[in-house]
């Protein structure tokens, strides 16, 4: 049955938006936890660990997200694990986000001058204390802008999970297009929804970056 694009359609898309936001949050939390561990390992770990993490980052950053998602969804299900679209989407997006966040945060940790480590050492802080009270708070300040910027990428990248049938905003748009045959209205509305989520984040990210460059040098 063909229905026309109206208020009900917008509500349907809004439901998809909730899944998009949910998947983004899930990806950011998982990617953030592993990203932090990987960033610390890459910046401060023993040499062999640094090499492994660097290899992981290089390989994931050179693979299209769509291929990662296909590998998790089709590939592993044939190998005997079945992941429903939600799990496959969350796992592959987290693998992807981990690589990028680890790379961003490693840069921020390495940007803290060596003298800060030495000063903290001179104050007789332990290695963990140096990291916890001296290095990470300063790295956090530098990292905030790029991290919020990467959140925008995560929100946009969740759209690719539509291609394995996970019903988020873009997939909802496809389904609605099949019902209404009004692709221009449907996808323009979908784009507007994404813009409403991403633009404030982009704006915030820019503000954070400006504040950092205007702030006192340390």
């Amino acid at each position: 049955m063909i229905q026309s694009f109206g208020w009900q359609s917008v509500q349907f898309l809004f439901h998809g938006l909730i899944w998009t936001v949910g998947l983004s949050v899930c990806t950011f939390v998982c990617g953030g936890i592993f990203g932090l561990i990987f960033a610390l390992a890459r910046a401060l770990g023993p040499r062999w660990l640094q090499l492994i993490v660097a290899g992981y980052i290089q390989l994931v950053q050179a693979t299209p997200l769509l291929i990662l998602i296909f590998l998790a969804f089709y590939g592993l299900s044939f190998a005997g694990f079945y992941f429903p679209p939600l799990a496959a989407a969350a796992i592959s997006l987290s693998i992807y986000a981990t690589a990028f966040l680890a790379d961003i945060w490693r840069g921020c940790i390495e940007a803290i001058p060596r003298t800060q480590w030495e000063a903290a050492d001179a104050l007789a802080l332990s290695r963990i204390q140096r990291l916890r009270y001296v290095i990470l708070p300063q790295a956090f300040r530098i990292a905030l802008g790029p991290t919020v910027g990467f959140m925008v990428q995560i929100v946009k990248n969740t759209s690719v999970t539509a291609l394995i049938g996970f019903v988020e905003l873009t997939r909802a748009g496809q389904l609605l297009n099949n019902m209404t045959f009004q692709p221009f209205h449907v996808f323009l509305t979908v784009a507007a929804f994404y813009f409403a989520v991403c633009y404030p984040l982009s704006w915030w990210s820019e503000k954070l970056k400006e504040r950092k460059s205007a702030g006192p040098a340390h």
């Binding site: 748009g173 996808f187 979908v190 784009a191 994404y194």
Partner: peptide, 10 residues
Amino acid sequence: NTPLLVQLFL
């Protein structure tokens, strides 16, 4: 601020 996939569909 919009995904490439949606731009392609549009």
